[in-house]
């Protein structure tokens, strides 16, 4: 077991991880250079958007709703001690829009869609599908990697918005139905506390960056997987590890920059 974990690349070999990160970054221009304004590419992106976007909705919406309920419950119990329970809407919205929405959505998306992208591309490599495309003079990066990358980049900010909306709805329902706060007060306090630029848009920027990171890490891990069953497993695990760490580090950096 110990030996397997070591082999699977779960150990923190720092220099190798850094080198991986470097070649991962170099993969980005290679992908972007293949963008063409063609209907064929658009069709491929839409197909992938179904797999990474539409099919991630259930987990994102459910998680969002319950996260909203939990923050509202926790926030209310604290606020009510200071007689500030009418600020619940503001507390919930600020923590969601600025931090929890983008970060949790990104982490959930990594688990739901990032891993499946990495596993799928890795498996295509292991079963010679990428070789076959190359031999048919079809560029696998353009045909396989690019649509998945673009679809993930588009999906993350949209899923984040859905997550936030459902979480606010959950919190609203808790406040209005459970602890009988005034609905107008909840919503009004929220609106006056949340500024479009520094609070809401900063969260949107974060989600865009997270989307790029997850998309890049997933396709990179899949495309560079060792073409064996174990290689695919390693690629999937690495996708979760590398994406999650990068998301949390970047969240700190972006927060510092955007504040």
């Amino acid at each position: 077991m110990n030996k397997y974990e070591h082999d699977a690349g779960l150990s923190l070999n720092l220099s190798r991880q850094l080198a991986d990160l470097g070649s991962c970054g170099l993969f980005l221009p290679q992908i972007l250079l293949r963008i063409r304004p063609s209907l064929k590419q658009l069709g491929n992106v839409m197909r992938q958007l179904y797999f990474v976007g539409t099919r991630s909705m259930i987990i994102i919406l459910t998680s969002g709703f319950f996260i909203g309920l939990v923050i509202a419950l926790q926030g209310y119990n604290t606020l009510v001690q200071f007689g500030a329970s009418e600020s619940l809407g503001a507390v919930v919205a600020l923590s969601l829009f600025r931090e929890l929405g983008p970060v949790l959505t990104a982490l959930l998306f990594t688990g739901r869609a990032g891993t499946s992208i990495a596993a799928e591309i890795g498996l295509m490599k292991a079963t010679e599908q990428l070789d076959a495309l190359e031999l048919m003079a079809i560029d696998p990066v353009e045909r396989i990697v690019l649509p998945r990358f673009i679809a993930a980049v588009i999906a993350v900010p949209l899923l984040t918005a859905m997550f936030n909306l459902l979480a606010v709805t959950g919190a609203y329902l808790f406040a209005v139905e459970w602890v009988n706060l005034d609905p107008g007060l909840f919503w009004g306090r929220m609106i006056s506390a949340v500024d479009l630029g520094p609070d809401y848009l900063s969260g949107v920027y974060k989600s865009v960056v997270f989307g790029i990171v997850i998309a890049l890490v997933s396709v990179f891990q899949g495309y560079n997987a060792e073409p064996t069953g174990r290689g695919v497993a390693v690629a999937t695990t690495q996708t979760v590890i590398v994406s999650s760490i990068l998301i949390l580090i970047l969240d700190f950096i972006l927060t510092a920059l955007l504040i």
Binding site: T127, Q129, D131, A132, L133
Partner: peptide, 10 residues
């Protein structure tokens, strides 16, 4: 080219 795994796109 016909590859060993057939390599049809899944």
């Amino acid at each position: 080219v016909m590859l060993q795994n057939s390599a049809l796109l899944t």
